[in-house]
């Protein structure tokens, strides 16, 4: 039976029963209700409501179950989506790492060998041939520069080799070189160590925040700050640019959120005209 008809029937039955009791039972209501009458009517009303509630509850139970299942399913789907995004991000980072390493260790080294070899031969050749070789050497150098640039974009070697503070310093100086805005860097000394995954997330979020500040904000001053707050290491990137609506998530913002989720970190973005703050709090492992 449709739920609607079930409810109509139940309500109808209760009302009919109440009416029958009122008509045939030892109950009367005067034009000016007396206290004794109310003492009977009120419990009657209570019984009626209770009966109605009990009867309705049993018929709504399957519906509630379906709703609960639906909510659980939505939550599970969201979790699965986040987990698979996290997995994709992790796989992407791993792949980037592998390619960058291969570029450095294989292609880069081979080109270095060629570069040094050409230099040596050049010194032993007559000048006219030497000149030609020098041009060749310049193209090898350009090739080497390209390889290095690509590898650097793929994976920040400085993070792995020198740690988070140096990597952030390097982001700040890259920013200073590309943008007219002044950048200030504050890294608290003696921060607790983070896992390599967390460090990478801090780095990528800082990178994205700085890229946004450089590209869209028209900021004149940017502050990059890493400090400890309670049980978390907190990254804050603040700029004085024109701001944006953080509820409209572009690919960059979504990417930051997903990365934060990857290591159980909390990302909040607040933006008004003249003050945009990207804040990432990474819990420190106990």
């Amino acid at each position: 039976m449709r739920l609607y008809w079930k409810v109509v029937l139940i309500n109808g039955a209760v009302l009919v029963a109440a009416t029958l009791v009122l008509v045939f039972g030892p109950v009367s209501v005067s034009r000016q209700p007396a206290a004794s009458e109310a003492a009977v009517l009120l419990p009657g009303l209570a019984v009626m409501l209770l009966a109605n509630a009990l009867l309705l509850r049993s018929s709504f139970r399957p519906v509630e179950k379906v709703v609960a299942e639906y909510d659980a399913m939505l939550e599970r789907l969201e979790d699965e989506r986040a987990a698979s995004n996290a997995k994709a991000l992790a796989a992407q980072e791993q792949e980037r790492h592998r390619i960058a390493q291969e570029l450095h260790d294989e292609v880069g080294q081979q080109l270095t060998v060629v570069l040094l070899g050409l230099k040596r031969i050049e010194q032993q050749l007559p000048p006219d041939l030497g000149e030609e070789l020098a041009t060749l050497r310049e193209s090898v150098r350009e090739g080497l520069d390209d390889v290095r640039r690509v590898a650097r974009q793929l994976r920040p070697g400085v993070l792995e080799d020198l740690g988070l503070a140096s990597a952030l310093a390097s982001l700040a100086s890259d920013f200073a070189a590309q943008s007219p805005a002044a950048v200030q860097r504050q890294v608290a000394p003696g921060l607790p160590p983070l896992s390599p995954e967390s460090e990478l997330v801090v780095y990528r979020v800082a990178q994205e925040a700085l890229t946004n500040a450089a590209r869209h904000s028209g900021a004149t001053s940017v502050v990059l700050c890493l400090s400890r707050v309670g049980g978390s290491v907190v990254l804050e990137v603040t700029d004085d640019g024109r701001g944006f609506d953080p509820t409209i998530a572009g690919a960059g913002l979504r990417g930051m959120q997903e990365r934060a989720r990857l290591v159980g970190a909390d990302l909040t973005i607040s933006s008004t005209r003249g003050a945009t703050v990207v804040r990432l709090a990474v819990p420190v492992a106990a």
């Binding site: 450095h104 880069g108 270095t112 520069d145 290095r148 640039r149 590898a151 650097r152 070697g157 400085v158 080799d161 020198l162 140096s166 990597a167 310093a169 390097s170 100086s173």
Partner: peptide, 11 residues
């Protein structure tokens, strides 16, 4: 080194 980054110099 292969890395073009002043942080390596400072380190």
């Amino acid at each position: 080194s292969m890395h073009d980054n002043e942080q390596y110099f400072f380190e």
